[in-house]
């Protein structure tokens, strides 16, 4: 054990924790009683029905294998592959998120450059920011009249704030020396914005984008439970209505994996734009 690298030791420990956890979970699920052992009374009161219980991990793994080996099948509105459901969710998240970035980053730039704009817009931002994105849902459904677009709007409204605030903060915090370098080299405002201010503020901006994508992925599940139809959030809720807890657990895990992948992507982007002063 001593001779192994830190990473190897951590990996071994992770595997042990996983196996141990799964084992405890598997053993703590009581076995289903078979019909033959029941008394007549129990049989009459419905005790022979398979009781809905938390499924053991072995069942979840089997389910995962089934689902992942055919992720894109489409057998009607209530029976689609996990890949299709996740695809819908990612499409909504990315659309709403891209619209938010399109507005938040230029607007954040302006706010960061102008102390007047910062002070003028600050009260609105402070009031709008803490609103739970789902609170917008009824209003969005009424105004937009389309559940699909409303879900995208909810993603838009929840991911705009961290990007807006971080962009403004990052731009306002660009060191005046660097701006002076741009000035003494006679760079125009646009050239200064792209060659000096943007790279200088990029780490802060990307941090905001990373926070936003995390929030957007949290919110899409809840939003899809409300609007229904498609998406991983709808899938979870639908399987709950079917009392198929194996599928519920499987989809919970998938939500985690996709969220992790989205976060990792922005983590890589963050590393690319980082610099040491």
């Amino acid at each position: 054990m001593q001779g192994l690298s830190l990473n190897t030791r951590a990996a071994i420990m992770s595997v042990l924790l996983l196996v141990g956890g799964l084992l405890v979970w598997e053993l703590s699920i009581p076995a289903q009683q078979t019909v033959g052992e029941l008394t007549e009374y129990e049989r009459l009161t419905g005790g022979g029905e398979a009781r809905a219980g938390v499924p053991p991990p072995s069942q979840v793994i089997v389910k995962a294998w089934e689902e992942l080996s055919n992720p894109f099948y489409d057998a009607g509105p209530n029976d689609k592959g996990i890949g299709i459901q996740i695809g819908y969710s990612i499409y909504r998240v990315l659309t709403g998120y891209a619209l938010a970035a399109l507005i938040a980053i230029p607007l954040g730039f302006l706010i960061g450059m102008s102390p007047v704009a910062y002070r003028a817009l600050n009260p609105f931002i402070q009031v709008l920011r803490p609103i739970s994105p789902l609170a917008w849902m009824p209003l969005a459904l009424f105004i937009i009249q389309d559940s699909e677009a409303s879900a995208i709007f909810v993603i838009f409204i929840c991911s705009i704030w961290p990007m807006l605030l971080n962009t403004a903060f990052g731009v306002a915090g660009v060191r005046s020396d660097w701006v002076n370098v741009a000035k003494t080299h006679e760079l125009g405002p646009l050239k200064t914005a792209f060659t000096v201010i943007l790279p200088a503020a990029a780490p802060t901006i990307v941090t905001g984008m990373r926070i936003s994508i995390g929030i957007a992925w949290l919110v899409i599940v809840a939003a899809e439970m409300l609007v229904g139809g498609t998406g991983i959030g709808y899938y979870v809720w639908n399987e709950w209505n079917n009392l198929d807890l194996t599928s519920v657990i499987f989809s919970i895990l998938m939500i985690g994996v996709v969220g992790m992948l989205l976060d990792t992507m922005f983590g890589l982007l963050q590393r690319r734009v980082a610099y040491v002063e």
């Binding site: 020396d177 660097w178 370098v181 200088a200 990029a202 734009v273 610099y275 040491v276």
Partner: peptide
């Protein structure tokens, strides 16, 4: 303080 752009 040199004023070099640290990302370049």
């Amino acid at each position: 303080n040199y004023s070099l752009l640290p990302w370049l």
